[in-house]
Design a protein around this nucleic acid. Structure first.
Lengths: 211, 211, 211, 211
DNA sequence: CATGAATGAGCTTTCATTCAT
DNA sequence: CATGAATGAAAGCTCATTCAT
């Protein structure tokens, strides 16, 4: 696996830099950080259950037993991947929102941001967040759910704002759910190296809500 | 688990009746059919990997070893569930299309049909089709993919027709992908016993494509 | 290991026969029963912690994984060994008591019975009961303790009876504890194939209490 | 764990002081000495196998890796605990014997001394000596056995002396074994903070041998 | 067809021990 | 001397699959 290609975390991103500096996100150059990236990659491509701790170790060049210096259990690795992904993307989303002027622009920014999150550096981790949900114990599911709720509030507020300005006909809650599905599913078919740019994809997605 | 409630296959459906009669779909009242329904339920709620053959056996009142008289392997059960689900829903979709007059009505019918497929009798099996994809061996993935391609052609043709009539602005291929995601994701949040009817949901979904 | 030698359970013993028949004790000729005997042997000679499930399996000619058809966990094997040992010996002790006429004879019978229990068929299991106590989880300790309490009551009642007849000077509770230690410790030094018969040893032990 | 309470080695004891001074026993205030006391405590309460080097380290405030600067292996710690315990108690026993006038008094002194050894400062280490015996490698078992033999000779000589004076009816060797068991077992039930004093317990124990 | 004991490979995790810093 | 990351062997246990009955 080439960890230095597309999947490398973009540490030039000032938002991410800040999170690492504040200790809310593991430094991607540390052993732990590398492990989490490798885990996101393997969990996405093989699934959590089918990924063994031996593979996880091999991916970062250590023995399986050594993993347990960094994480108490395999499940803790999954949790950490999910947790940090939400934290990073929520921070990015907040930054994007504060750069936007009107409601339509805000919705565009959120869509672009979520497409970025599933197709750039945190893409694999986002997939894991969606598809490996049931592999978490109920306790941990509850915890991650709390984080997601904060994230969803950003969306609902923005859609509501668009609606008050007559830009949107849908029920806000339903629209958000439909968009979540539409955007999430792009991981299964969109290829960043094809003809369609992420910005074009964002525009087509916005077109679902606003005509 | 109550196999006789909502989740029971609707054998009054003439399309399904016909498929069973032609031997293309296993009789849901046979031992094999019951097993497949139980499998769909367990695979959906627990995930394929986390479902053991013991549980599968217990769900239909036999020992794990006896499963292997009906299916060569656990994976064959997964495959059978996926295969029949596609066959059933493709037949239903063809039936719905032939009942529709114009292009807009056809698109509406497809959306309603796919929502039905994920929220009524084949709902759990459809979820399995989406979420347990990677649990199939490459060979079997390829086979199921062929079946899906036929199914997708129905969609693309209909969307193209709408576009030629100026009903749709999107690129057909992209719209289909976005709708696939939006509809599939409803399994995670839509509750048939809530305020929103499936027909209302279909209308809100259609609104993504046609305003 | 020769399971057919000294350590074989004496199935001619009518008391044991009855317990097996009533289902309170596992048939020593069944797979489960053989496993328990092998476990008692290994747990005694190597200690519970140092005995691996692989060794346990090898001792009865099966794979380690197959153990878990008979017992849910390694600890369950330990518990079963302890439990049945107490049940068997309590039954034997009750039988011996009902054969005795006066209090002194009863005490003699109890001592002989306990010496038998640690030096004949259940000997290894008795050792396990004493030495592997801490390897049980607190829950299971509590359960075994209850069984032991019934057993101890037989002793205390008999000693008290002796005391009322002026045969004994000791405090009953303390004497029982001292005798428990003295008898239990014989496992570490007494050899049944030496000069000293078990009956002689019983007499010397009785001499600690009654002169 | 409070190492400074009851369990502290009694360094006012002149016999112990002398052994430390002669270098036969580790200074209990040194790092190594503290470790040995902590080990005795943990080995007694959890068992040798279930005590990890991490816990051992934590108990004296160092990392597990640092233990190996003081001891070559975990087993060496066990050996050291056993070895010093025998040395200390043999010295104390010799001192007690030389304070006694007649044979009966000597036997009383030995019993009291051994009860002290299992219930005061070396108590936990003595338990370890008895219960963790099998955790030693055969080589080390042999070595500790030699030390024990010297210790046992003191007992046998004293009992023989009593017997020649008609104080005792038992066979000397058997009596010693019975007493070893009776005294050793007191660790499982005797509580120094209860109604029974150690001196009373010693008298009741002497009563087993001499009436 | 059904059973259920057995397989055997593979799993996650533990842990004494090593060693560069 | 102390650290703590890493080792690597071994542990208990799981589970799809087989097969004699």
């Amino acid at each position: 696996m080439n960890l230095d290609a597309l999947d490398t975390v973009d540490t030039r991103d000032p938002v991410l830099k800040d999170l690492i500096h504040k200790g809310q996100v593991t430094d991607p150059h540390s052993a732990k950080g590398k492990l989490m990236r490798a885990a996101a990659h393997l969990f996405k491509s093989k699934g959590y259950e089918r990924t063994t701790v031996r593979e996880l170790g091999a991916a970062v060049g250590i023995q399986s037993g050594s993993l347990f210096h960094h994480f108490k259990s395999k499940e803790e690795i999954l949790l950490a991947v999910m947790e940090e992904t939400i934290i990073i993307n929520m921070a990015r989303m907040n930054a994007a929102l504060s750069d936007s002027k009107d409601a339509g622009e805000k919705l565009h920014a959120l869509i672009r941001c979520e497409l970025d999150s599933v197709h750039t550096d945190t893409g694999e981790a986002m997939s894991v967040l969606v598809y490996e949900w049931r592999s978490l114990s109920p306790d941990k599911q509850k915890y991650v759910l709390q984080l997601r709720d904060e994230y969803e509030t950003l969306w609902l507020n923005t859609i509501e704002e668009c609606k008050q300005q007559g830009l949107i006909q849908h029920d806000a809650f339903i629209l958000r759910r439909l968009l979540t599905g539409a955007i999430g599913w792009t991981t299964t078919w969109y290829r960043p190296d094809g003809n369609l740019s992420l910005e074009d994809l964002a525009k087509q997605t916005l077109l679902l809500a606003i005509k």
